[in-house]
Design a protein around this nucleic acid. Structure first.
Length: 347
DNA sequence: AACACGGCCAACCGCCTGAAT
DNA sequence: CATTCAGGCGGTTGGCCGTGT
């Protein structure tokens, strides 16, 4: 009934491959190609099962394998694809040339997953972690304490617990498969369920009269729950739909060591930043230096916000992890912006 | 120096799918 | 239709290695 396990035979070696075994496998495949993995080990003189040979070749010995650390762009791609595809590692790997499903899976589990958890994001759903919701704390903090600070080291202007409660309530509404975004001019738009690619982004803003406004901003962004940026209307003290015409013309390319912020600097008044905890702050009020010093570990040199005649940028951390974290936050802003444009949701 | 601990990742395991018989 | 097989996939494991005590 069915097939028997391929490694059932006695005498077949398991465990780490030796250099000699690798050489035998490489030489055989270079000479004969790889077609029948079951007969390959015998023909190649290897005491391994075919499956072990195939895995060794596809995950390690293949000449087109890209070794070394994942680039920032690769990491972004993985997160984006995972938010759509889930744990379909092979499908994700198919879009990352030179990377194997095994490598991506390992990298997800050891790096990205932990990073998202640290940021309060559920790595499965890519939504804010509602398991952190504590009803009692919500009830006892209806007037949110201004002493809270967020990951950027600044005081938030909204209550994150309330945000999560609102998210929970809206989540139940979403089960009806549609949500409504109220347009600035009163027109209503309908959007699909949260698990569709057209994701909705919950935005909450507390105005100067401490009245809480809750709206949903569609973003067409798998990353819409990551630190993001939408336009803020100071006239009405309400969060309005982004006016695409007033968004920065471009965001400079970001590399792990230098994050150009000049576009932000020129448009700060038009934006409100929202981190993944739901904290809001005018971009102009963001204490980037404070945020960067928080990211820096004692063993690394502190990162700095620098300026020259052309741009403002982040530099200085000797820790690769810090650099990645810095560019991560910055690049996520960029993503949100690009996806707003691409979605045509507001046009 | 010795030990404990945790992170990382190559490799394995079990299951699934589709093709061949 | 049932069985067998090869290959693929995702989850899990075990050992290596760096770091902290």
């Amino acid at each position: 009934m069915g097939r028997s396990p391929c490694c059932e035979k006695n005498g077949l070696k398991k465990g780490p491959w030796t250099a000699e075994e690798d050489q035998k496998l490489i030489e055989y495949i270079q000479k004969n190609g790889y077609g029948n993995w079951r007969t390959l080990p015998k023909n190649a003189g290897l005491q391994r099962c075919g499956k072990s040979c195939r895995l060794r070749w596809t995950n390690y010995l293949r000449p087109d394998i890209k070794r070394g650390r994942f680039s920032f762009e690769e990491e972004e791609t993985i997160i984006q694809l995972h938010s759509v595809l889930g744990n379909k590692w092979s499908a994700i790997a198919a879009r990352l040339p030179g990377r194997t499903d095994n490598e991506i899976k390992n990298y997800w589990n050891t790096h990205i997953r932990k990073r998202l958890l640290r940021m309060g994001i559920d790595p499965v759903t890519h939504n804010p972690r509602l398991d952190l919701l504590d009803i009692s704390s919500i009830l006892s903090s209806s007037l949110y304490s201004q002493s809270h600070t967020n990951m950027f080291g600044v005081q938030p202007v909204v209550n994150p617990e309330l945000l999560r409660l609102a998210a929970s309530l809206l989540s139940s509404q979403r089960n009806q498969n549609t949500t409504t975004f109220v347009h600035q001019n009163g027109q209503e738009n309908q959007f699909g369920s949260p698990h569709q690619v057209q994701e909705n982004h919950l935005v909450q803003l507390q105005n100067q009269d401490h009245q809480t406004l809750i709206q949903e901003i569609p973003s067409c962004a798998p990353l819409s729950n990551y630190p993001s940026c939408v336009q803020y209307s100071s006239e009405s003290s309400q969060l309005m739909e982004p006016n695409v015409d007033q968004l920065p013309s471009s965001f400079s390319d970001v590399n792990p060591q230098t994050c150009a912020l000049n576009d932000w600097q020129n448009n700060l008044d038009n934006f409100i930043a929202i981190d993944n905890y739901g904290y809001h702050q005018h971009v102009s009020d963001f204490d980037f230096n404070s945020h960067l010093s928080n990211l820096s570990t004692p063993s690394s040199s502190p990162a700095h916000l620098n300026s020259n005649s052309n741009s403002t940028y982040i530099t200085g951390s000797s820790s690769t992890e810090d650099e990645r974290e810095i560019s991560y936050c910055s690049n996520l802003f960029k993503y949100e912006y690009q996806e707003i444009l691409e979605s045509n949701a507001f046009m």
